[in-house]
């Protein structure tokens, strides 16, 4: 088995942004996802106008990846070496509902292709891939809760079978009332890294210091 570790992680939840457990940005009040993620964009200024065309959950995944990679942890890896494997519980149901509303009534029928394309959870993987030119393995799984046992062994086997040398893993979810993005960077074991195991990943997610 290839020994792996997590070198950095990022968490966007409850109108706050944490990088490696430290609070790096917060809005004073509870904002909906749409306003919150735009305020994160304005704060960190990725200068990527395509951001505004994305649906809210892709915006969330995109900004989580921007902050995860802000220190250049991905530099030095070839495009093909970097995979992205994500999970969530709600797929794209919030975007799906707004698309469904647009097709429900033929007297008021306005399906939009630019909304339809976002009704697949892996589109955010595509957005992160385009931004960073990542061309390795892709997969999106749906579980009721963050299944770190499944995800860590999935990512482990991708390394073991020589498919990738680095990977973004995590949980990026949007429900009607809530949102959360928790993502991390996995690569070959390094001295200062965090352990890439199912329990350890859940601990990193819980590790939000004020």
């Amino acid at each position: 088995m290839t020994k792996l570790s997590i070198s950095t992680y990022c968490h966007l939840v409850n109108h706050r942004v944490y990088k490696d457990g430290k609070l790096i940005f917060e809005k004073p009040e509870a904002l909906g996802l749409s306003d919150f993620v735009k305020s994160v964009y304005r704060q960190f200024k990725p200068k990527y106008p395509k951001f505004f065309k994305m649906d809210d959950i892709s915006k969330l995944g995109f900004m989580a990846a921007e902050l995860l990679l802000m220190d250049g942890v991905h530099k030095g890896f070839e495009s093909e070496e970097v995979g992205i494997v994500l999970e969530n519980s709600h797929a794209t149901l919030v975007t799906d509902s707004s698309f469904q509303e647009s097709v429900e009534d033929y007297d008021n029928f306005f399906p939009s292709p630019s909304v339809f394309v976002y009704t697949l959870p892996n589109i955010m993987i595509g957005e992160i891939s385009i931004r960073n030119k990542f061309q390795g393995e892709n997969a999106f799984f749906i579980f009721e809760d963050f299944n770190t046992e499944f995800l860590s062994s999935y990512i482990q086997q991708l390394f073991d079978t020589d498919k990738i040398n680095a990977c973004i893993g995590g949980w990026i979810n949007q429900s009607a009332t809530d949102y959360e993005a928790f993502i991390y960077w996995v690569n070959a074991e390094e001295k200062n890294g965090y352990k890439h195991g199912p329990e350890e990943i859940l601990q990193l997610r819980a590790d939000n210091k004020r």
């Binding site: 595509g126 385009i130 960073n132 990542f134 061309q135 390795g136 393995e137 892709n138 997969a139």
Partner: peptide, 9 residues
């Protein structure tokens, strides 16, 4: 295996 074009959604 799988792979991404990293080109267009």
């Amino acid at each position: 295996a799988s792979a991404n074009d990293a080109n267009h959604i």
